[in-house]
Each structure stands twice: as structure tokens, then as C-alpha cells.
Design a protein around this nucleic acid. Structure first.
Length: 412
RNA sequence: GCGGGCAUAGCUCAGAUGGUAGAGCGCCAGGUUGUGGUCUUGGAUGUCGCGGGUUCGAGUCCCGUUGCUCGCCCCA
């Protein structure tokens, strides 16, 4: 039998990986709070219809990547492949369409059945933000600004470029799509096999093909600009203006197309060149039709999601663990007194640990190994005098400190 | 779903042409019965990913399989 190992595409997050993971979430959560976002936790599996209905028939996420199965009652449930649909469902379920706007932050696991690669897993983790209610372009700019602030707080904004596009409103998009189909149908024979298929299923996708032959043709392809309705064009202009006013640098890329069908108007991707083929680190757009599809009233919304694993890999350095204080008693009487000291330090907010066995040499080695910044050495001699020998493990210097003064002495 | 590369100790890796496994780091114990990080001596590392085949003999060759990895598709 093969040794037990995590299921393909899943992994354990431990040690430095977990510190990076936690740091990304904590940083994003704090930034989202400054914008007035509240955190929601929704189920990691939903009625299959929540996703099947809304993501679109053409996206692979629906057609072949969902973890869908029947539960014991015979209902079809699906592990969430993304969380925007779930948030919209929760909005409707909880009657919050009456209390708009809702500004939602979330963090948690997502599941897609696809071939694992660097920065791409079958169970992966996302942070995300959704701004539900406002139809104004300031909302688009503001939520993008939140994303930019998070990347900046993580110290990785220098590796990332924000690419921006508009998909227009429904009428604009339909007209543009027809023009693209005309153009590419004329060139059909010159397209890659993948793009010939896209031409039938999702012609907009040809625009971000990586095939060099396709890219040549895409250069000459019509752009959406002339097809935008006056309203869609001025909406896009307002998004750009507000981004500039909010201090967010961006680059327009008319070939940005989002994968999921529910997007309209603003589409954006924060991309990096440091992660190979998985360069998209945070992406989103406006999805004005989704809440209605979930059974709610027509409700405009805009949001994004970001991959925690991808962000973690971009961090320039790993967050340092807090250096503990090692308490080292010598003998039984000292150990009893040490327990009191331990709890006093912990309740003062300090990280304090005591080994479960071993002589002083072993305990000091252990203290060194766990990165302790100080050791509190307590033997009969110290006990009788009401002091502890506090040794600074970086300098090696040691001094006797009265029990009552320990927390203050060791506070950072 | 498609194509390429890889899999040897906890970690990073050596092991030409087939002759039943090594290094460094780490780990354990001693030099030091109340003083770590340096030094020094010694010790244990292991179904060579898994299964099958060829062979007197397979870590090494062949087939299958699982996982990782890079690219495509797709996407965070």
C-alpha cells in the first residue's frame, strides 16, 4: 500500500507556511476594516445550483472543475469553487438586500478540481471583498484601492501591476462580441485549435490567449471602446478618474477578460511576473446581475478575490515568530515556584514556556532551539533569596531579578 | 484534460558502464553532577515513492502507478 499522503492538490500548511498564510489574512482583514468592511463566514459547500446557475456555462470552473457530490439525503452539493456566489446567496438568505450597502470581507478555502501547479491547488485559500449595493463608479475604484492597500501593506506592490479594462454594459458587450466573432471568423483557419473552440464557446477569451499566432491576430482585433454606450464609456472614465484620486496606479489593458460570466463593466487583475503561469494574484470586477440570479432584487455589486498561497509566495520575508521566554527550574521546589512565574508572565501577555523534563544543560539547549530571547533560571539558591537569574540569551548576560519585577523586566 | 522533467536519511543532495547504500545539515549521547549558542568525540538514520518485470544479482534497465514540478487549457 502506498504511504498515506495528502490528497492530490492539497497540502498541509505548517510552520513558516502557516505564518505567511496568517500574516496575509491578518493584514488584509485589518486593511478591510479601515474601509468599513465586515467579515462574513459562509459555508464551504452549498447547493450545487448556487454555483451552476451563476458562474456561466462556458467557464471551466463550472463545466469540469467543481467538486460536486450527493449527500446522504440525495441532494447535490458542491464545495465552493469561489465565494462571490455564496456571499450573494447569503445576502439574499439573510434579507440584507434591505440594508445596503453591504461591505463584506472573507477568507477561507476554495476547491477546484484541476491539475495542480505552482501556486495552484485543488484546495486553495482566498481572501476577498465584495461591495454590494452601490452602482456608482466610486465603489469600483474604492474596492480596487482596498486591494492595492493590502498589497502595499504586504510589501509586494512593487512586484505587481494593476491591469484595468471595461467589459461595458450588456448592450455594449453584445455588440462588441458580435464584432469579434465577425473578425475572428474571417481568420478562423489562422487561429490555434484552442481559440477555434473559444470562437464558438467564448470568443472574448481569444483576447488573452497565450498562443503567439493568436496574439498576432488579437493585435489587429477590434477593441471594445467604439462599441461602448455613452453611459458605459463615462462609467469607465469615472472609475479611472477615481482610481487616480485615490492614489492607485493602473495600466489599461483592453485584453483583460474575466473568466466568470457574471462580470460587466469594470474588470481588473493584479498581476506579477514572479509566479510563472499563475501570475494573477488578485482579480475581480463588477457583477450587477448576480444577486438577482440568486433570487434577490436587482442589486449592483463589485468585488475581488485573491489567492492566499500566491500572495504568501510573493512575501519577501517570512513573518518572524515571537521569541519566547524559557523558564528553567532546578529541582522540585523550584518547579512549583516556576509554575507561578510562568502564569504571571503569560497573563502579562508574554510568551513563556517551560520544558517538561531535562537538566539545565538540556533545557538551555532547548531554549536556544525554540529561539527564546531570555531564560529564567530558578534553583534553590535563587528561591531562598526570592529572585530568579534572568539570562539574556543573545548577549549571555545574566542578572538576579526579584520575582515581582519579572514581568516588567521582561516586557519588550 | 494534454505534453516534458523529477522521486535515495527529517532537510539539501552524491551514488559512469547493474554487484544488496553515502555526504553535509539536523537529531541522539558523552567531553561539562547549576549555564545554551562555538568546539570536540561517538551513535542512529533509509520498506532507495509504490507495484510488477528482465537478471545469478536492480537505487541503477523495462512496464505500470502515485506524487511533485514546468508548460498548455483554465484560473486566485
Amino acid at each position: 500500500m502506498d504511504p498515506l499522503q495528502p490528497v492530490r492538490g492539497t497540502r498541509d500548511i505548517i510552520g513558516e507556511d502557516q505564518r505567511r498564510h496568517t500574516h496575509v489574512i491578518a493584514t488584509a482583514r485589518a486593511a478591510a476594516a479601515t474601509y468599513g468592511f465586515d467579515e462574513w463566514t459562509t459555508p464551504i459547500f452549498e447547493d450545487t445550483r448556487v454555483f451552476a446557475r451563476t458562474l456561466g456555462d462556458t467557464s471551466d470552473v463550472v463545466t469540469k472543475e467543481m467538486y460536486t457530490f450527493s449527500d446522504r439525503g440525495g441532494d447535490s452539493v458542491t464545495l465552493r469553487p469561489e465565494n462571490t456566489a455564496g456571499i450573494c446567496r447569503a445576502l439574499v438568505t439573510n434579507g440584507l438586500t434591505q440594508s445596503l450597502p453591504q461591505k463584506v470581507f472573507y477568507a477561507g478555502p476554495m476547491f477546484r478540481y484541476e491539475r495542480p501547479q505552482k501556486g495552484r491547488y485543488r484546495q486553495f485559500h482566498q481572501i476577498g471583498a465584495e461591495l454590494i449595493g452601490p452602482a456608482e463608479p466610486l465603489a469600483d475604484a474604492e474596492i480596487i484601492a482596498l486591494g492595492w492597500d493590502i498589497l502595499s501593506a504586504l510589501g509586494i506592490e512593487g512586484d505587481i501591476i494593476l491591469e484595468l479594462n471595461t467589459l461595458g454594459d450588456a448592450a455594449s458587450r453584445t455588440a462588441y462580441r458580435a464584432a469579434l466573432v465577425d473578425y475572428f471568423t474571417d481568420q478562423r483557419a489562422a487561429l490555434s485549435a484552442d481559440s477555434q473552440e473559444r470562437l464558438d464557446k467564448n470568443p472574448l477569451r481569444i483576447l488573452d490567449s497565450k498562443d503567439s499566432r493568436d496574439q498576432m491576430l488579437v493585435q489587429q482585433a477590434p477593441t471594445i471602446a467604439p462599441f461602448l454606450s455613452p453611459e458605459a464609456a463615462s462609467f469607465y472614465d469615472a472609475v479611472k478618474l477615481n482610481l487616480t484620486r485615490l492614489g492607485v496606479p493602473f495600466r489599461e489593458n483592453p485584453r483583460i477578460v474575466r473568466g466568470l460570466d457574471y462580470y460587466s463593466h469594470t474588470a481588473f487583475e493584479f498581476v506579477t511576473t514572479r509566479l510563472g503561469a499563475q501570475g494573477t494574484v488578485m482579480a475581480g470586477g463588477r457583477y450587477d446581475g448576480l444577486v438577482a440570479e440568486m433570487g434577490g432584487p436587482p442589486t449592483p455589486a463589485v468585488g475581488w478575490a485573491a489567492g492566499i498561497e500566491r500572495l504568501s509566495m510573493l512575501l519577501r520575508q517570512s513573518p518572524a515568530p515571537t521569541a519566547p521566554i524559557a523558564v528553567i527550574p532546578m529541582g522540585e521546589a523550584a518547579e512549583i515556584a516556576a509554575l507561578t512565574i510562568l502564569q504571571t508572565l503569560r497573563r502579562a501577555g508574554l510568551r513563556a514556556e517551560m520544558a517538561y523534563r531535562g537538566n539545565m544543560k538540556r533545557r538551555l539547549e532547548r531554549a536556544n532551539k525554540i529561539g527564546a530571547r531570555a531564560a529564567i533560571i530558578l534553583g534553590e539558591d535563587e528561591l531562598n533569596r526570592g529572585v530568579a537569574a534572568v539570562k539574556n540569551l543573545a548577549t549571555g548576560r545574566q542578572a538576579d531579578i526579584a520575582f515581582a519585577d519579572l514581568p516588567a523586566h521582561l516586557a519588550e
